[in-house]
Design a protein around this nucleic acid. Structure first.
Lengths: 258, 258
DNA sequence: CAAATAGTGTCTTTGAGACAGTATTGA
DNA sequence: TCAATACTGTCTCAAAGACACTATTTG
């Protein structure tokens, strides 16, 4: 065993090393499709993609030209992949404090024709106001939001179809089994706003029903009613506001009610 | 924006590339501490570590010598990190079909004094019989199982303390919120065997109580009673057997009972 | 007042949790 | 027989789900 160990270390020179190490970010936003006065929002979960250029800076044909891709870039040698993702997202959106989470590594040989390139996949949650702003400032031709219901029909670069599929699965899970939904909401929100977020990823009748959900929200240990504050942004009648309590929630499937 | 994109591609030559790409595996096993006849098992969640050699093959002092470490090795350029983890684990234990899951990437600059080395972290679930066997065959001085309650007190190599902490958190979550517990159990198991697995990571009274749990298990949609089969391995009285049904379980925290 | 949203009142049914009791069988 | 494990019977309490109803406010 000691030999085996020592040999492994010797092998360090033998193995080929990767040609690149990148971080990519699936930027999700929930845009209120309709946002009329005194109406609860109708929401749609969207992902931001960029369109790859047709030619590179030297005028040569670009690889995966004109295809849609998730934003990303190379990790520098003085930062982690996570830090790189954060940096790139901040460069892209000009905001910090964004919720961002690593969810996978994509390293299948041949995934990038340029070489052996390893990609860290992250998802981020960004309020849609920032993205509309970003799109307005810049030449906006090559940045677009796509509904998660449509995005997989696009012509996507590299293995980004797989990455996006996985990201949608992960964020669906996280929205339902963690309190990450709070990142799509203002600090104080109404029951119907939280409900609209969850509706983007589930058909659970207990969540779909207004009465059930407005009753249920009062008994959730990780959500608290904000006393004495109301809003009229979702209805003419003043509506109670709630806020998330900071806590880890692990509800075992073995004790839940089915 | 097109310029920015093109520039990014140009940068491919500018960035330093990693010095190594590895896969490490936290090998978990549940050993039955007591396994007397007609007794339900008392289980303990353990992790397998190897002891790093004192000197390398050339007789030089090894880095992180004599410290405990999680097993792993370099990813080859014709395989993914996940495949490498599977290959290494099979080399180590001589079994295939093991449950293995990627849970993180460790790439903090300076984490490995030998260079910029990126590690994919996985956890695996291995029946303890295989590990005892493996330990018996080999010179066993440098391979050991540690309870997750003790392992963090050891002198651990590199950033393996962090990796193991994270692995314990992830497997705890998965055991309670997915059906991954099935990998610690035979195909047909008793309620007390499943209970013993869950007890290694939770103090939930509904799981701790024999009566509650033996009732509850009948109503779980992902567990089915095996008709007409019983066992006496956990008690003198014949005990009903159950099996997991293949299905995805996502129980929203918003509909669970608290 | 009509329409829309946000609730509440109340009933039925289900299940969780607790406690006590029964069932089975080897030592 | 006893001790240990695996249940089952039954009660109480809380919550889920359904339905009807009330509350509030603007156009």
């Amino acid at each position: 065993m000691s030999n085996k160990q020592a040999l492994k270390q010797y092998d360090i020179k033998k193995y080929r090393t990767p040609d690149g190490y990148t971080s990519d970010i699936c930027v999700f936003t929930i845009s209120s499709e309709k946002n009329e006065a005194y109406k609860p929002p109708t929401m749609d979960l969207k992902i931001m993609l960029i369109k790859r250029a047709g030619v590179d800076s030297e005028g040569n044909m670009n690889i995966e030209a004109n295809k849609w891709a998730i934003p990303g870039g190379f990790v520098q040698d003085d930062e982690t992949g996570f830090q790189a993702a954060k940096r790139e997202l901040e460069e892209e959106t000009n905001i910090s404090g964004i919720h961002i989470k690593h969810f996978g590594v994509y390293d299948k040989p041949g995934r990038d024709p340029r070489g052996w390139i390893i990609s860290n996949a992250h998802y981020a949650i960004v309020p849609d106001t920032y993205l509309s702003l970003r799109k307005a400032q810049d030449d906006a031709a090559d940045i677009e939001l796509f509904s998660i219901n449509d995005v997989l029909d696009l012509d996507l670069a590299f293995d980004h179809k797989q990455i996006i599929e996985d990201a949608i699965q992960v964020i669906t899970n996280d929205l339902l089994q963690t309190t990450v939904a709070k990142n799509f909401l203002p600090e104080y929100f109404t029951y119907s706003e939280l409900q609209a977020v969850l509706k983007t990823v589930t058909n659970d009748p207990a969540i779909l029903s207004d009465q059930s959900f407005s009753r249920k929200i009062k008994s959730l240990p990780f959500i608290q009613e904000v006393q004495g504050k109301t809003t009229t942004r979702t209805s003419k009648r003043a509506t109670k506001l709630y806020t998330f309590i900071e806590m880890d929630v692990i509800k075992p499937i073995y004790t839940a009610r089915y």
